[in-house]
Design a protein around this nucleic acid. Structure first.
Lengths: 225, 225
DNA sequence: GTTGTTCGAACGAACGTTCGCTCGATAATC
DNA sequence: GATTATCGAGCGAACGTTCGTTCGAACAAC
């Protein structure tokens, strides 16, 4: 089932075991794959996964229909590659941005800023990830779920730390609180237009304020900055 | 395009112009239509609109494939009927619950409670409405959009009144705030399991608290109850 | 006998995928 | 250095299946 190794793609600077002599063809393979996946991401974001026919994706990528199957063995695998890479990039981006930030409240602000920043910079990919979560099945679904769970755990532990440090006797279900934050953030793909709306950083700040005040119930969140 | 009048269906106690004599066959037609739409809602909620074949819906409803087309002239019209009725019911439910409530903060609480209550009671229908927003095209899409805009305006004006009454010098984009609330609420269909999670009313209360404190930045929301 | 319901059977179109082939570039052989 | 073998990359054409929809006959009710 997992014949097309996904790790190869984003572990680009990893220890290479066997393929490094014929560098030329290898690099051009990955470049070509990336190009096709980007085209696919655009089409799927526009019309949805089921409506996005392989013919339409092939046309958008400038490849023949049959030629696509040199890069993945099925349409579902194509969607998996898009989602798996995006979720991993999102997670790595978050971990990187959190480095050196210790204060829980500031961690939460960084997290929301990071999520929204990546969102705004990769709208199509994150629309596909938010909307087509259940379009994968079996092992492919499980693998993306694993990454999403990692992401959830990082965010959840930040929410926990914020509440532990500044709890004010309110009874808050922390899972519900975390999911409400994801809802606030991910729903963006339904309404946000980067050409018309406010800048992503402005929205991120407002979201962070709203969510923090919502958690803490008072203004004290500010003295952390 | 709009051959199958949708208003007839939920304006059930409206002034009837022409059809009230042959009550028997008329009622059984509506009942049968309702039954098919409910089955369709379940199938679409489970596998998505595109994957939900008319054959699968027909089997779930206990009707032959051809027999479905006696109640709507296309698959898209079937989806339209589901969405249009659900959105209208949601809107009417909200207006009803708001009657007699004057205080803005309490209005907002009622709104969140109402939305979540309807959500919990009609999970499948609201999943279809949240997830398949863009599956309609042309006039059908416009009609559902109109109802959704009505719903937005009611909620937005409540947010406006809350902020006007309790503004504390914070700069808040009210559209962004309203959409963040819809995100928090509608994202529910992605994670909430009525059999495992907390009761809908408990979640509604926490959502209301979070969103209100988030808007106002302090605890004063409570003295409205 | 008309009208409203229901259905089996079939339609053309579109889908994801596969097959057999071609084309260049590289590797191997002499 | 010329010739041959090997292989990845790409494509046109077709496969079998499933899709939404239609048609005409059958049956019921009044």
């Amino acid at each position: 089932m997992i014949s097309n190794k996904p790790e190869r793609v984003f572990e680009s600077i990893e220890a290479d075991h066997d393929t490094r002599r014929s560098t030329d063809s290898r690099e051009s393979f990955d470049d070509r794959l990336n190009h096709i996946l980007e085209a696919a991401t655009g089409v799927i974001a526009r019309v949805g996964y089921e409506r996005a026919s392989m013919r339409a994706v092939a046309k958008a990528a400038g490849v023949s229909l049959a030629g696509m199957y040199h890069y993945f063995d099925s349409k579902e695998r194509m969607l998996f590659l898009i989602q798996f890479r995006t979720f991993n990039a999102l997670l790595n981006n978050l971990k990187e941005k959190l480095q050196g930030v210790g204060e829980p409240v500031e961690q939460l602000r960084v997290m929301i800023r990071s999520h929204l920043g990546y969102f705004a910079a990769n709208m199509a990919a994150l629309k596909v990830c938010s909307h087509e979560l259940d379009s994968l099945t079996g092992g492919a679904y499980d693998e993306t779920r694993r990454v999403r769970l990692d992401y959830y755990n990082v965010c959840r532990s930040i929410v926990d730390r914020v509440l532990d440090a500044h709890a004010r006797g309110r009874t808050i279900d922390r899972h519900v609180a975390t999911m409400s934050m994801f809802g606030m953030l991910n729903w963006l793909y339904r309404w946000y237009d980067p050409k018309r709306g406010r800048a992503p950083t402005a929205i991120a700040n407002q979201f962070a304020d709203q969510f923090l005040y919502g958690l803490l119930g008072k203004r004290e969140a500010e003295d952390a900055t």
